[in-house]
Nucleic acid binder design. Sequence first.
DNA 1: TAGATTGTTAATCGATTAACAATC
DNA 2: TAGATTGTTAATCGATTAACAATC
Lengths: 213, 213
Amino acid sequence: MKRCRISNNVIRRLPRYLRHLDDLQARGIERISSSTLGDQLGLTPSQIRQDFSCFGEFGQQGYGYHVSALREQIAAILGIDRGHEAILVGVGNMGKALLCNFDFANWGFRLVSAFDVNPQRIGEDYNGVPVRNAEDLESFLQQHPVEAAVLTVPREAALSTAQRLSQCGVTAIWNFTNVELPACGETIVENMHFSDSLLALSYFVANRNNEEE
Amino acid sequence: MKRCRISNNVIRRLPRYLRHLDDLQARGIERISSSTLGDQLGLTPSQIRQDFSCFGEFGQQGYGYHVSALREQIAAILGIDRGHEAILVGVGNMGKALLCNFDFANWGFRLVSAFDVNPQRIGEDYNGVPVRNAEDLESFLQQHPVEAAVLTVPREAALSTAQRLSQCGVTAIWNFTNVELPACGETIVENMHFSDSLLALSYFVANRNNEEE
DNA sequence: TAGATTGTTAATCGATTAACAATC
DNA sequence: TAGATTGTTAATCGATTAACAATC
């Protein structure tokens, strides 16, 4: 096994591999070669083999990769089996959409609580996840530390809430607020910047004719 | 002006520049140099100057960049002033969250209609955006072509809906379905893969100790 | 065994950084 | 004018692709 520093590009491709392997498995496909996988994902076989070789030797010469074994390896690399616990802060439309629709468990996370400032929301329950008073954030986290916090508060509250979470020792923040959070100590920030994505789309639409020529 | 093929990395940085320039403007800052901007964004001054030089000469030697002028240039490059029109398909939790909370107009898009299959939702109105019957998608788009479609249908419906949109000549699909959409003809697909982002976060959490040493 | 396909090393390509003449 | 900072060319660095010996 070649030990290399894992580049961000590689990390960002792993979830896509995982999704595709899940798909292959659902279709009953048991083995796959790097060249077939490359065709399906629009990547070169070389790149796929390079990516995997950062983490170990998962294939077999002359055969390829076992879909299910490879799937498990990648899932393990991504930490799906670590039983990460998480909270969600801000039960507005976005927070509710995640609470109701997003399958955290499927991706290795267990939501243990939600928090909000609105008294009408406090006490609500979404699939077994209770909404607590945001004032009790600190005391809750002290008793029950979590790895991750989903940040779905309004933008005005984004920065202060992120700082509180960081101070409580939350390892990572999944940031839906469209606000750039400055590095808070050790805390990892993973951004879901909707507007960045929409603006990239806007750029591609505006420049679609240049691309072709 | 140096004419280069614009790399994807550059395109993905543009929205961040725009957000930051908006922020500077809100704070009343009128001029900025590439090195100050670099400090604030965690980029090198060289990279920032290289990025801008793909599109023109926006600065002034010895002075730097006018924040408001630069902001307008980048907004124009991203196509914010093009008056793009869009529809939204699938008024579930995610669709509603976008309809209620996301400021499409601020990013240069005008939502002209939403669509859903559920009769109870048809006829609803979100800030002036009516929900129409999804069966009428084709006839509506024929009368009223749009550049973009926001895809927030359940995953089972993702592929078929994307194909219908593509056949109706929608230029780009903003895909929230966590399903990998294959290239449908000319249609541009911009993905918001929540799970990919969460899994990257999971990786960083699982490997946070390796990173430091 | 022969064919296929891996893991890895070497070659290429592209993106980032550094340097500097031009100039406000 | 002198200092600052640009736009751009050259140098470096890293990521992708190609090639191939190893081997299932």
